[in-house]
Design a protein around this nucleic acid. Structure first.
Lengths: 151, 151
DNA sequence: GATAAATCCGACATACATGTCCGATTTAGA
DNA sequence: TCTAAATCGGACATGTATGTCGGATTTATC
């Protein structure tokens, strides 16, 4: 599962992907569009910026941009600052099984963990954009994503 | 992922499976064997008991027993009091997608969620027991599971 | 009947994720 | 040069999972 921060990060990244050509998008505008808590999103964006996923511009008309094109960015890359994406070397039982002699729980856990890791690593942002909103300008049809209530 | 409580529940259930014929096992003994926090494990066991997974006996020589045979119990059944096992109708983005017109994120999320649900639902306790410790008496070789440090 | 072993129950403590707030700094534009 | 829009950073509040503690109750055994 993704943490809430991870989901915000992904939503923000997708939003920015849809405004790739435009001027930077501010945290306030993005929070408005995504209907998520403004100050918390701002914090998430700062972290994504530090992590190198976003480029930030300060001052008037500032905001955030993706540091790479949506086609180059995977979900895993977007959420990694918040959600550990590495396949943990743990079995269902919580202990670190030795991979040389894995217990049955270990194998089963891996099976589902692989599925998760693979999906996060292989899915690109462009795969999650509706229609052809990938890179064009002026496209302003935000995806209907979340149900977080407005405060 | 399983919560810590879910992992404790699973470890406890497996421990009880290995002592199915014996007299009930107390929370204190189990915590000792599993090397997990005693009072917290006690809380988990009470909840499992209320949930119907365990039968409890109060008083001297009391403790807990599995309410069914290990072969009849699935991981999903064991942890369901703590970890929601139902496939959430949510996509990667956090919102409840309508299943009649799922977004791409929805489909990918389901893919990995299915893997998780299927494994939890299909894996029986007996599948996780080492060797033939399933139901026999006097077998006292607890599996080496966890790394929680002793307090 | 007294004692000790055990479940039961709730109150409290701690850790971490989430969310809010405010002040400092940067910067475009009037 | 002033103002407003914006990032930045830290302090604080809240909620939930985890962990700890103390007492009440049940019950086998002496």
């Amino acid at each position: 599962m993704l943490s809430r921060s991870g989901i915000y990060a992904l939503q923000a990244a997708l939003h920015l992907a849809q405004h790739a050509g435009d001027r930077p998008v501010s945290a306030a505008r993005m929070a408005e569009a995504l209907e998520v808590p403004r100050d918390y999103l701002a914090k998430v964006l700062r972290r994504l910026s530090k992590d190198g996923l976003l480029d930030s511009t300060r001052g008037v008309r500032g905001g955030y941009r993706l540091s790479a094109s949506p086609g180059e960015l995977t979900v895993d890359r977007v959420v990694r600052a918040f959600d550990d994406v590495q396949t943990p070397r743990q079995c269902l039982l919580g202990g670190p099984c030795h991979s040389d002699r894995p217990c049955p729980a270990h194998l089963r856990r891996l099976e589902w963990n692989e599925a998760r890791s693979r999906i996060l690593a292989e899915t690109k942002l462009t795969d999650l954009l509706p229609d052809g909103t990938g890179d064009r300008d002026g496209v302003d049809s935000p995806i209907q994503l979340s149900t977080n209530k407005r405060k």
